[in-house]
Write a protein that binds this DNA or RNA. Structure first.
Lengths: 335, 335
DNA sequence: GCTGTTTTTGGCAGCGCTGCCAATCCTGTT
DNA sequence: AACAGGATTGGCAGCGCTGCCAAAAACAGC
């Protein structure tokens, strides 16, 4: 309130002890409400803390404490540009907050080497857990995670083997369900429109599941457009225009996600193509806007928040190793 | 690589020193490339580190080091559900990453009391800086921030006095510019459609600027619809329908943001109202989809990533105290 | 070969806190 | 009033690392 402290020394627990006229251990006990102390001691410490504006130093606390810090969680996501990951974080921070655990985040930009570097950097804070996205990592990342002595949770994808705990859903199953829906609705000349598959491995798994299910129905993809760069409505719009120019006879398009699908819908509106009469659109994610469209988007809603929450639960209690949270196909009106 | 460590003791710097046959200080010097050491010492340490799989403990490092940790930054955002904040984080993490600084995040849910609690929690990690959103905080938060001995950066809003550094733009000016644009285009019967203003103070400032500019033109708001809950396309769609039912003669609507405006656009599409002929729509944020719409949304693009980047720069070098990054009015085709 | 640097090195205190343990203070009893 | 048994308390080592300093080694000049 009255200007900055003389920088260089903040109030320490020892200061509080002196101010309160008690020993350091007593202050520590009071502050953590751990062990027994008298009411009087509690009051005096509380007063001293308030008077001095003491903020505990968890760096020291965690160092002195038993094992690791147990108060930080390291989270690595591939991107923050795609709504999915903020949603994941939202679920995580919400659930972890109650336990007093904070998230330290790293953004890998879909680069496994960056992911590895980030894993090392985050581990150096001795977190209670390391939360990764997807199941595919560098061997070095896996080694770090295993040797780190921390709980490891891999989120979103359950198609494969995890290091420790896994929370998510099957992207292959999503792709397959989407394909079956389109087939059941009578669409036959189906194309895929997505962003870079080398980079987004979960999208690649969905596509694999999609193609497999098409195959079971005796069909195959009639066209494919892979846009470089991140997914976005702009990319979806341009992509659908390109796709239709190349394959004018398509009757349905499966998009890598709702953002792309929204762009596709805009392209149809702009070109005056009726949806789903002339062309059907199918997305992925079940974002907010999908339900608000004049014709609700046909898509698959993924339990993004819930994945975050369950991942948090994995750290706190010893939950089961693998949790498949499933997904929900939303029939919508565009496919 | 070969299973989990016997949990309880991770490799320490002392282990590395023993393994490499050098002193602890030498290992420390090599690892941080600080001070001088022989080539041979460097090699032996590097080998030992690799052999043992040593990951430094920054908890200890920061505790022993000079002042604060200087390797963590505490970031408090009101929400992760609104694209704005992930974008902010994206800019931040991107720029901070190069400096080896990690972000510890807290989500306040627009609650000043939670913000205060989070500030204390984050400060207990002795971060290099505390990054807050907006200029309005509890007195307790301000006191903590000032006493914390850290750099404080308040992001997004420049309409008011900051604690330390401020990076953003003027929300009032955005509102005023938006109003002037609508007025210049000839719209006269203008309404506002937004989400909870008590909670989103920046939106309230935009509206204040908007109304002030309307006033200068001799106009005033013809209607207003405030939806409870977070902004979303669904809320925007329902809101516009309610607004038009109440004020059928409106010729333009100013939305609290693009998500709401997208919902409004969908409402118009669904109702067959021509945009902007029958009704003009004006948003805020300049999100990706705005440009991909059949008629590009008229809106204001805010420098969200750049705010994050500049905020990061504020922590690293001693930048100027207040940075106004301005905004860009996008004329679009909906207003 | 010997002194006067300069570079490289290891030991050790201490960062702020917690855990352990022994000391002290209470109770209620005999 | 003296005493057992529990509640409460303070001292101090030590968590893993860095900064400081003095010792040791390497090199320089004569």
């Amino acid at each position: 309130m009255d200007g900055f402290q003389p920088p260089g020394r903040l109030v320490t627990l020892t200061d509080v002890a002196r101010e309160a006229g008690v020993g350091e251990s007593t202050v520590s006990r009071v502050l953590r409400n751990h062990g027994s102390y008298s009411k009087r001691a509690g009051e005096r410490v509380a007063e001293a803390v308030a008077r001095l504006g003491y903020v505990p130093n968890r760096l020291a606390g965690s160092l002195a404490g038993p094992g690791a810090s147990a108060q930080l969680a390291g989270v690595i996501v591939p991107s923050l540009a795609n709504v999915v990951f903020p949603d994941l974080l939202r679920g995580l921070t919400g659930a972890l907050d109650a336990a007093g655990i904070r998230c330290v985040i790293g953004v890998s930009d879909y680069d496994p080497d960056r992911e590895e570097a980030l894993a090392a950097a985050l581990l150096s804070w001795r977190p209670a857990a390391l939360l990764l996205t997807g199941l595919e990592h560098n061997p070095g990342t896996v080694a770090l995670a295993k040797a780190g002595g921390v709980r490891v949770v891999e989120m979103i994808d359950t198609d494969g083997a995890g290091i420790d705990a896994v929370v998510g859903f099957s992207n292959r199953a999503v792709g397959a369900a989407s394909a079956r829906h389109l087939v059941a609705r009578g669409y036959r000349r189906i194309a895929y429109l997505g962003h870079d598959l080398q980079v987004d491995l979960r999208a690649a798994k969905r596509l694999a599941g999609f193609e497999a299910a098409l195959g079971e129905a005796g069909l195959s993809l009639q066209g494919q457009e892979i846009r470089s760069g991140p997914s976005s409505p702009g990319s979806g719009r341009a992509g659908l225009e390109a796709l239709l120019a190349r394959h004018p006879d398509l009757d349905a398009v499966y998009f890598s996600n709702d953002d792309m699908a929204l762009g596709g819908y805009f392209a149809c509106l702009a070109a005056g193509l009726s949806v789903p009469g002339r062309i059907a659109l199918f997305g992925f994610n079940g974002l907010d806007f999908a339900a608000a469209m004049p014709q609700p988007l046909s898509t698959v809603r993924t339990p993004r928040l819930e994945i975050g929450r369950q991942a948090a639960a994995c750290l706190i209690g010893e939950g089961p190793k693998t949790i498949d949270l499933g997904f929900e196909l939303i029939e919508g009106a565009t496919a």
